[in-house]
């Protein structure tokens, strides 16, 4: 399985990673090799096998509907690279 430069660019856009032309070449080659490793799975018969998304069979625990948190805005904003008026600040968003 080999993937194209265009696919690598598309994936980088989906993942919001800026990649240089050089990196694009490297990723194209490396990802193709890694995906080549994965080809062997296609030969395994898996019809009727339920996908396993959790390592251990477990069921959802549920929490009581009670309010346990209080205002912690200042603590949370302390790590923000840019904040203003109690909000996280980002470049102007166009909708």
């Amino acid at each position: 399985m080999s993937i194209t430069v265009e696919t690598v660019r598309h994936v980088a856009t989906l993942a919001r990673l800026e990649i240089s032309a050089e990196e694009t070449g490297i990723y194209t080659e490396q990802l193709s090799r890694i995906l080549g490793l994965m080809e062997q799975l296609q030969s395994i018969p898996t019809e009727g096998v339920a996908p396993m998304s959790h390592a251990v069979a477990m069921t959802m625990p549920e929490r009581d509907d009670t309010v346990t948190n209080t205002n912690q805005r200042d603590t949370l904003l302390a790590n923000a690279p840019d904040s203003e008026e109690g909000c996280f600040r980002v470049p102007k968003i166009i909708e």
């Binding site: 346990t68 948190n69 912690q72 805005r73 949370l76 109690g86």
Partner: peptide, 17 residues
């Protein structure tokens, strides 16, 4: 999470990690 589910508070005063 245990944050209050309410409308109309000051920005980011009803949030947690």
């Amino acid at each position: 999470c245990g944050c209050p589910n309410q409308f109309g508070s000051a920005p980011n005063t009803q949030i947690c990690p």
